[in-house]
Design a protein around this nucleic acid. Structure first.
Lengths: 234, 234
DNA sequence: ACACCGCTGTCTACAGTGTAGATCTACGAG
DNA sequence: CTCGTAGATCTACACTGTAGACAGCGGTGT
């Protein structure tokens, strides 16, 4: 009955259902699968198998697969906490930024969902947990004296930047990690020299990407620019 | 034999193959489908049907479906032109930004591919057409006197911002277009008032999103910030 | 002339997908 | 005890991506 020897072949058959199936357990398990195998490896049948349940039982807790994916994105985004009472709004936004980056690095396979799902659903129909950070940031900024319109602009600017940043940072994956030469490690040697001379010459710079520093630089520029372009106090 | 009466039911059976199937025709047709019906409606079988070919023939021009999607993204991105010889690098980057926005608005369903596909492939293995703008921007910026490292940073900052911006802008879709009240038009009335008071109160601001202006503001902040934080001439 | 090769297209088949609809099961209310 | 109902399960359907075998072709070397 050793689960590791049997369960290695098929995916975690989870032999006994032990208690009721809740939406939370379902989403947690789905997130686990996505984190391990990526989004397109998540199937209703596979998820059900991992939970030891019938595939159709999932439809009691998620209307369809799209809703399930929304749920996963929501779960991940729920880790993000905003304190609207913080008097230092820039510090609070920086905290949000750091949390968001942390989340993205912890769940890289979920990032496509985070940036992409909102395109499929109008704002008002999105899962509540997704709208929570928006409302909280608006709260934070209006308390700091910004108008609603300006607060919304700042929220958009921040999350636009954050989405762009994590997409940038997660692209920096290395193809051949145990190679010492940067050019080889990144596979850049396959690019024709006369077509991509600059790109190839930047191998060492590419190899030494520092996401945290890049985020900080961006935040400095963004928050500085916002403060000077906004017509409000403090 | 009226194609509109018959072809309405099934999807463009395209009765006679007329000539060889090229990669370009395949990608153009795939793009057409994606633009019309969205990404997840694009299937190998459906595409083959639209081309009047056998599904398996597609695999002569794309290794698998992922490669096909990469091809679509590449096709769209190829519309973007950079002039590395332009002496005014900020103007040229602004032009790139405007082109990119235009492309995203013309092919909204392709945007998920544009921002998401690079996450799945290391840089050096990406389709060549995708790397072209990068090399060209690097060329532009080094000619303007920037170091390679700085040029790369600027490229990342710009495209990170652009990705974030178009993701923002494309979310602004309206649910109920023929309604006069902004609150109803956006469906915001369904949100509980006590949980999302600020969001609901911003209905009119949400309804009047101006993507072009938002892009311009962002570009001002970004390019201004970059110029002052970079250690280079001009 | 022939044989050979590689490229393109076609056919069949397989394992897997999301989910509609019918059916079974268990439990609380009357 | 009966009934209704909510949940869980089963079956089935239409569809997916693609491996593998095979047919027709033009060109090339001998």
């Amino acid at each position: 009955m050793d689960t590791s020897s049997i369960g290695a072949a098929l995916r975690e058959p989870e032999p006994h259902p032990d208690g009721k199936l809740t939406r939370e357990r379902m989403l947690a398990c789905a997130l686990e699968i996505v984190d391990r195998d990526g989004i397109e490896k998540l199937s209703m049948r596979g998820l059900a198998r991992a939970l030891g349940r019938d595939p159709m039982s999932l439809y009691r807790h998620a209307e369809n697969k799209a809703a399930l994916l929304d749920g996963v994105a929501e779960t991940v985004l729920a880790e993000l906490t905003v304190d609207p009472a913080d008097p230092d709004w820039t510090a609070q936004l920086r905290s949000v930024a750091h949390q968001f980056r942390r989340i993205a690095l912890t769940h890289p396979h979920v990032v496509p969902l985070l940036v992409t799902r909102p395109l499929a659903t109008p704002l008002a129909l999105r899962p509540r947990g997704t709208l929570r950070p928006l409302e909280d940031v608006l709260d934070l900024l209006t308390r700091a004296g910004f108008s609603g319109a300006d607060a919304l602009h700042i929220y958009r600017a921040l999350f636009g930047f954050l989405h762009g940043h994590v997409l940038n940072e997660l692209q920096e994956l290395v193809e051949n990690p145990d190679e010492t030469d940067d050019l080889l490690r990144l596979g850049l040697h396959r690019l024709p020299i006369h077509e991509f001379p600059l790109l190839r010459s930047l191998a060492s710079v590419l190899a030494s990407y520092d996401g945290a520093a890049e985020l900080e630089r961006g935040l400095d520029i963004l928050l500085g620019g916002l403060r000077s372009s906004m017509t409000t106090a403090m």
